[in-house]
Amino acid sequence: MPGRLEEEALPRRDFLGLAGLWAAAVAVVGSIAGMMRLPMPSVLPEGGHRFRVGRPEELPAGTEQVLPEQKVLLSSTPEGIAAISLVCTHLGCIVARTENGFACPCHGSVFANDGRVIGGPAPSGLKWLEVSQAIDGRLVVNGGRQVESGSYFKV
């Protein structure tokens, strides 16, 4: 134990002062972190992602239908019906249907008919969305659930 007249390594007052400063710093950082909880949404305002579209009979094999509101292309083939999202995987613009695929107006991504990227900055192909059928016979697309591209819904 050091004698009373020996100098302490860290004077008591300095220690208490530093402890106070650090406590204040932790409190400030902690409250900023706590405040960021407020702008971070815990409930998202959007409704469900599922929406009903037409009946399968209205979409004979070989036809397709663009639903601009839902940002989806319904494509009917002999293999079944598929829903391809029209939201560009690059930065969220809506791609336009072209003769042999899709083109994005914002940054020039190009997609093939099945949604594969064939040019431009998009990191991945257009999403294929889950298609099912409701009890009333209408088709239901789930915009929140992606399926393997090339998986068709057989009526």
Binding site: M36, P39, M40, P41, L44, P45, E46
Partner: peptide, 19 residues
């Protein structure tokens, strides 16, 4: 996380505008 902080939602809408 950054996108949700900016938009307050997962899509652009009223929450994004007010932010």
């Amino acid at each position: 996380i950054q996108k949700q902080l900016l938009l307050g939602a997962s899509e652009v809408g009223q929450d994004a505008l007010i932010r």
